[in-house]
């Protein structure tokens, strides 16, 4: 009974979906604040339900299947696209040091699931049989290749400090010692933020789904329920990257507990998690607001000649210290 509650409602699927819709609203609201705007306002109180409205509206629209598409993949793969991300989110500790799934190879599993989602993106783009989608898919693959190595090296930092691949060990290490971000991990934190922006396909790195040049990229042919699932998977990806940043560098959900235990401690930990992730979203939207979309050549050049060497250097730095 407790297990079912944990998986389905809190901190499982229900809570994760709540986080997905709230984080997207927070991101848009903060971005609007930076640009002297108000942001979503009419859907719910101050527009909290904006992402939910987008999701419901898209899922009730007509579905169009183009002739040139690969029928089976086009029909069924979008429905499964949020699943790897949902599974990956079960590894993130939200309300205690231990997540729903915790074992020795958490980070391996997460990196594998992120790559799996990128593979799904490429397949979806290919299956729609559209030239724009194909260009978007190839750009998405390019980003996977470019940002994979800095992502791994940046997340390796906290693994090396904690001496374990398990997220619970990393969180416990940060609870007992300092957070990874204070000290040698700061460089890795910056690299991880940039790569997570790229993984989320937000503004400076949104070449795979650039609306103005390739009309939506790999999502171009999807409409109705299929597009709603794609939106959901993008929202879940945002939660996953923010949650990973919090877990690896900001000490996870831990914080002062004031000697409490049991349910109160869990609620406190959830609040700490939300606060820390809001801070991460603030920095991410600051980065998005300050930069325009980069060219594909700039992205690859920047990652291979700048980001990758810096990430390797930060790992070497930690080995020396």
């Amino acid at each position: 009974m407790v297990v079912i509650f944990r998986v389905l409602i809190y901190p499982g699927i229900g809570f994760i979906l709540f986080l997905a819709f709230t984080y997207d609203w927070l991101y848009r609201k903060i971005l609007a604040k930076f640009q002297l705007r108000i942001g979503p306002q009419v859907a719910g109180h101050k527009g909290v339900l904006q992402s939910l409205a987008d999701f419901i509206k898209t899922s009730t629209k007509e579905e169009i299947i183009p002739d040139k598409s690969h029928k089976v993949i086009f029909e069924y793969l979008p429905i499964f696209s949020p699943l790897p991300l949902l599974l990956a989110l079960f590894f993130i500790p939200i309300n205690s040091e231990y997540a729903i799934i915790n074992n020795q190879g958490d980070l391996y599993a997460i990196l594998f699931l992120i790559s799996l989602f990128a593979a799904i993106q490429i397949t979806l783009g290919w299956a729609s049989g559209n030239n724009y989608a194909m260009i978007g898919a190839s750009r998405s693959g390019l980003q996977l290749v470019s940002f994979g190595i800095p992502l791994v090296f940046a997340s390796i930092t906290s693994v090396m400090l904690a001496g374990s691949f398990s997220f619970s060990d990393i969180v416990i290490y940060q609870r007992d010692n300092n957070w990874v971000i204070w000290g040698v991990g700061f460089l890795a934190f910056c690299i991880f933020l940039i790569t997570s922006l790229a993984e989320m396909e937000k503004v400076p790195f949104d070449t795979p789904e650039a609306e103005t040049e390739i009309a939506g990229g790999w999502t171009v042919e999807y409409s109705g329920r299929k597009y709603a699932f794609i939106i959901l998977s993008e929202l879940l990806k945002e939660v996953l990257m923010v949650g990973l940043t919090v877990t690896l560098f900001l000490g996870g959900p831990t914080g002062p507990t004031f000697g409490m235990d049991g349910i109160v401690k869990k609620i406190l930990f959830t609040i700490y998690f939300l606060l820390k992730s809001s801070a991460v979203i603030f920095i991410l939207s600051l980065l998005s607001a300050s930069l325009a979309r980069l060219k594909v050549s700039q992205i690859t050049e920047g990652t291979w000649s700048l980001l990758t060497p810096i990430s390797i250097m930060s790992v070497i730095l930690i080995i020396i210290i």
């Binding site: 903060i30 609007a32 604040k33 930076f34 640009q35 002297l36 705007r37 607001a289 300050s290």
Partner: peptide, 11 residues
């Protein structure tokens, strides 16, 4: 941008 964040929106 951070200055903008703390000023009132022009909307």
């Amino acid at each position: 941008l951070i200055k903008n964040f703390f000023t009132k929106p022009v909307t």
